[in-house]
C-alpha cells in the first residue's frame, strides 16, 4: 500500500505526492504515520513535519492547522508551510531574535498573545533548518 500526502495552504498546494512515512507534530505530541493508518482527525500544532521518501528525510515547517488521515490519504491543512530547504537560515534566525525581543517588550494580554505566536512560528522555522543539517 502506498501512502499519499497532501499539504495544502490557502495559497497553493505545497506537497502532493507519495511518501513512505511522516512524523507530524500534533497538539498532543508527535505522531508517526505509516501506510494503513487508522482514520483519525487531529489538530496540527505550529511545528515541523518530517517526511520520509525512501531513505531520505525531508522537513517542513508547518504553521498550525489540521490533518486528516484515512484510507492511506493524509490531508494536511495549514496556514502556511515551508520546506526546510527553502528557508533562508540567516533570515529565519533574525526573525527569531526579533520575535524574542518583541515578547520581552510585550505588554498586556493582547500583545503577549501576538508575540507568543510569532515566536513559536519563528522557532519552528529555525528548527526546520537545523533538523536538516
Amino acid at each position: 500500500m502506498t501512502l499519499n500526502l497532501c499539504v495544502l495552504t490557502p495559497n497553493r498546494i505545497v506537497w502532493d505526492s507519495e511518501v513512505k512515512e511522516i512524523i507530524l507534530s500534533t497538539n498532543s505530541g508527535q505522531i508517526g504515520v505509516l501506510p494503513n493508518h487508522a482514520p483519525i482527525a487531529t489538530a496540527v500544532d505550529i511545528g515541523i513535519l518530517r517526511i520520509r521518501l525512501n531513505d531520505q528525510w525531508l522537513t517542513m515547517a508547518l504553521m498550525g492547522g489540521f490533518a486528516r488521515i484515512g484510507n492511506n490519504e493524509i490531508t494536511v491543512l495549514v496556514n502556511d508551510a515551508e520546506k526546510g530547504s527553502d528557508i533562508d537560515p540567516q533570515e529565519a534566525q533574525q526573525t527569531l531574535e526579533t520575535a524574542e525581543a518583541n515578547l520581552r517588550k510585550a505588554e498586556g494580554k493582547r500583545q503577549t498573545i501576538e508575540a507568543n505566536l510569532a515566536l513559536r512560528r519563528a522557532r519552528t522555522r529555525v528548527e526546520a533548518i537545523n533538523v536538516m543539517s
Binding site: 500534533t26 497538539n27 498532543s28 505522531i31 487508522a38 482514520p39 483519525i40 482527525a41 487531529t42 489538530a43 496540527v44 498550525g64 492547522g65 489540521f66 486528516r68 484515512g70 484510507n71 491543512l77 495549514v78 496556514n79
Partner: peptide, 20 residues
Amino acid sequence: TPVLQFEQDPVQILDALLPL
C-alpha cells in the same frame, strides 16, 4: 463519510480548524 477518530478533544480540533 469515513469513520473518523479524534486524536484530541473535539474542542481542540475545532480550535485548530477555526483559525484556518
